[in-house]
Amino acid sequence: MSTLPAPLPPEPDAPFPPVDQALRQPDGLLAIGGDLSPPRLLNAYRHGIFPWYSQGQPILWWSPDPRTMFATDGVRLGSKFRRGLRRSTWEVRADTAFAEVIRACAETPRPGQRGTWITREMRAAYERMHELGHAHSFEVFDGDRLVGGIYGLAIGRMFFGESMFSAESGGSKVALAALAAHLGSWGFPLIDAQVENDHLLSLGAELWTRPRFLAAVAELTAEPGIVGSWSGRVGCWPATRLAEPARAAGPACHDP
């Protein structure tokens, strides 16, 4: 990486540079330094910016163009996969195992990837955001075993996805689809997936231009949100409901 932007001021509430100043190579690199305090993170996400860096690097802040987005009514599960879910015993919960989900996202091996960008510092920062009611996880359980999950930040009626994992085939798909179903029923129209890959596109993600994305973020983050634990809203929710998309926001499998 031969070119780096100027460092951020030390104050957590200092403004970020305008996103149209982000580099084209590497795509979207906007700022360097600062910290991962809650005020800085909330300010970043409200402006379409997120941190992404590796161990040993300074904190790097990004706003890529295009942006990878899911409509909450646009997550696609294949018909074969949905048929398999009709026999599934998996259950979905929210905000009951946030630390376990982010740790699994950091530690699960991924094809073509060495190491992880979810550093110890990043994990601590997002666990703090979870404690404050801004960061949330959707978890997929087979009995007491965590087999998949996804986590991210909610600001207003916008959800910013960070990472997901599977310990069993399809675990992350169920987590994403369950998240989308619930968000849609709560009035959240979009999930930010940040940077494209073939897997996300196969599940229905779309590429948005940065101006289109930023306009949506400005509108949705200004709306009233749902701060605090989402555990009681989701309860224990059977993954079988994803086999019939029209019923995806049905009742829990038992009282939370």
Results as ranks from 00 to 15, higher is better:
Trp52Leu: 02
Val101Gln: 12
Gly112Tyr: 12
Glu121Tyr: 00
Leu77Ser: 08
Arg103Asp: 15
Ala94Lys: 14
Arg83Ala: 15
Ser88Gln: 06
Gly112Gln: 12
Pro111His: 05
Ala97Trp: 06
Phe70Arg: 03
Ser88Thr: 14
Met69Ser: 07
Leu85Asp: 04
Gln57Leu: 00
Ile59Phe: 05
Pro109Ser: 04
Val92Lys: 07
Ile59Pro: 07
Gly78Tyr: 09
Lys80Arg: 15
Ala104His: 04
Pro109Gln: 07
Asp95Arg: 14
Gly84Val: 02
Phe81His: 01
Ala99Arg: 12
Thr89Lys: 06
Thr89Phe: 06
Pro66Ile: 13
Arg103Ser: 15
Thr108Asn: 11
Thr119His: 00
Cys105Glu: 06
Arg67Leu: 05
Asp95Gln: 13
Leu85Met: 12
Phe81Gly: 01
Val75Thr: 05
Gly112Leu: 09
Glu91Lys: 09
Met69Leu: 15
Gly84Gln: 12
Ser88Arg: 13
Ser88Glu: 05
Gln113Tyr: 08
Glu107Ser: 08
Gly56Trp: 06
Asp65Lys: 04
Asp65Tyr: 04
Val101Phe: 11
Thr116Lys: 11
Thr96Ser: 10
Gly84Glu: 10
Leu77Asp: 09
Pro111Glu: 12
Tyr53Ile: 07
Trp61Asp: 00
Lys80Phe: 01
Trp61Thr: 07
Ala106Gly: 10
Ser63Trp: 06
Val92Trp: 08
Arg114Gln: 12
Gly115Arg: 03
Thr108Leu: 06
Ile102Arg: 00
Ala106Trp: 03
Val92Gly: 04
Ala104Phe: 05
Ile102Lys: 01
Glu121Thr: 11
Phe70Met: 03
Asp95Val: 09
Trp61Met: 12
Asp65Arg: 03
Pro64Phe: 03
Gln113Phe: 12
Asp73Arg: 14
Gln113Asp: 13
Trp61Glu: 01
Arg103Asn: 15
Arg114Tyr: 07
Leu85Ile: 12
Pro109Gly: 05
Arg87Tyr: 09
Ile59Arg: 13
Leu60Gln: 06
Thr108Val: 12
Arg93Ile: 06
Ser54Gly: 03
Lys80Leu: 02
Arg110Glu: 15
Thr72Asp: 10
Pro64Ala: 09
Pro64Ile: 10
Glu107Gly: 09
Arg87Cys: 06
Arg93Glu: 02
Phe70Thr: 03
Thr119Glu: 00
Val101Arg: 12
Phe70Leu: 08
Gly78Pro: 13
Thr89Arg: 10
Thr116Pro: 03
Gly78Phe: 05
Ala97Ile: 00
Arg110Ala: 15
Phe98Trp: 13
Arg82Gln: 11
Arg76Leu: 13
Glu107Asn: 05
Glu100Asn: 09
Ala106Asn: 01
Ser79His: 12
Phe70Trp: 02
Ser54Met: 02
Arg82Leu: 01
Gly112Glu: 14
Glu100Ser: 15
Pro64Cys: 11
Lys80Ala: 10
Gly78Trp: 08
Arg82Val: 02
Pro64Asn: 07
Tyr53Lys: 01
Trp62Gln: 00
Pro109His: 03
Ala104Arg: 04
Ile118His: 01
Thr108Ser: 07
Tyr53Trp: 10
Thr108Ile: 04
Ile59His: 03
Ala71Phe: 09
Arg93Lys: 08
Pro109Phe: 00
Ser54Tyr: 10
Gly115Gln: 02
Gly74Asn: 09
Gly74Met: 10
Ser63His: 07
Phe70Cys: 04
Ala99Phe: 07
Gly115Glu: 14
